[in-house]
């Protein structure tokens, strides 16, 4: 029983990692067609990446959007998570349910509904409209991460600080903030990653300056550009894994600091 499950688990992981594992294979393959057999090893596609101004503009655009979305989503996440874990108030379930709703809502619904409102108000699309949408879908993830950070916090810690002469504000700064800081960093990184990868909302709301995924989407139609896309994808995957590992490190350190048992996982 255990052995067959273990074999299954390994096969399943192979299934999960199959697409990602193929990325570098084709990124370094000296051939313009994305298919087997492989030809030879090359850095050509990575070199070409440096020569596409439109790509650079898209990367810059995406980074700006991702940073702004991450900061805003984390701020909203802190407020909501603090309210949810520390205070009881009527209607809490409904309010939190609404805020967490984008977690299950198809992104296309979020995208078109925002589009309709923005166009009706006569607002022009741009990076800021993408940020609005990304904050909306990243906030639930931030809340989920920060909830566990705040939950691990004994409420008497803040009371103890107040009892020892600190004000409400300074005890938040001296006690609560340092203890939830790993959660905040982890939330920033996750929200950043979500925004950086998000396609549908950006596709609908981006206006004239494409984000990186929107730019990529455009490139997928041209077979001769695919090897470059593979190279770009490789870089993106490496960056994502790096960010996630850092986020996981901070999440675990936060859990260790507040003396929680490590249950694992972001969700």
């Amino acid at each position: 029983m255990k052995r067959s499950l273990h074999v299954y688990a390994v096969l399943y992981l192979a299934f999960l990692y199959a697409p990602i594992a193929l990325l570098p294979v084709f990124a370094f393959n000296d051939g313009t067609v994305i298919a087997f057999p492989l030809r030879g090893f090359t850095f050509e596609w990575f070199r070409q990446l440096t020569e596409i101004p439109a790509l650079h503009a898209a990367v810059l655009n995406s980074l700006t959007i991702a940073v702004a979305s991450a900061v805003l989503a984390t701020c909203l996440g802190i407020l909501a998570a603090r309210a949810a874990t520390r205070f009881e108030f009527p209607g809490k379930k409904g309010i939190m349910g609404l805020i967490m709703l984008p977690l299950v809502l198809p992104e296309i619904i979020v995208a078109v509904s925002l589009l309709v409102v923005l166009l009706q108000l006569g607002l022009s699309l741009g990076a800021w409209t993408v940020i609005l949408g990304h904050v909306l879908i990243a906030t639930p993830f931030s809340i989920a991460i920060l909830n566990s950070a705040f939950q691990g916090l004994d409420t008497s810690l803040e009371e103890a600080a107040i009892d020892l002469g600190e004000t409400k504000l300074s005890s938040f700064r001296l006690i609560t903030l340092p203890l939830v800081m790993p959660g905040i960093i982890s939330s920033l990184l996750i929200a950043f990653t979500i925004s950086l990868d998000e396609f549908i909302i950006a596709f609908f709301l981006t206006g004239t300056d494409p984000t990186l995924p929107v730019y990529l989407w455009g490139q997928l139609r041209f077979p001769q550009k695919l090897p470059v896309v593979m190279a770009l994808g490789t870089i993106l995957v490496v960056a994502s894994v790096l960010l996630l590992t850092i986020a996981e490190y901070f999440r675990r350190r936060g859990a260790a600091r507040t003396g929680q048992k490590d249950a694992g996982g972001f969700l």
Binding site: G233, V237, L244
Partner: peptide
């Protein structure tokens, strides 16, 4: 925790590129 981390990693890499692959 490590297993769960391993399972979640692919999810966080570019969706577009995963589908394309």
């Amino acid at each position: 925790a490590m297993w769960i981390f391993l399972i979640t990693i692919p999810f966080w890499t570019s969706y577009l590129i995963r589908v394309f692959l």
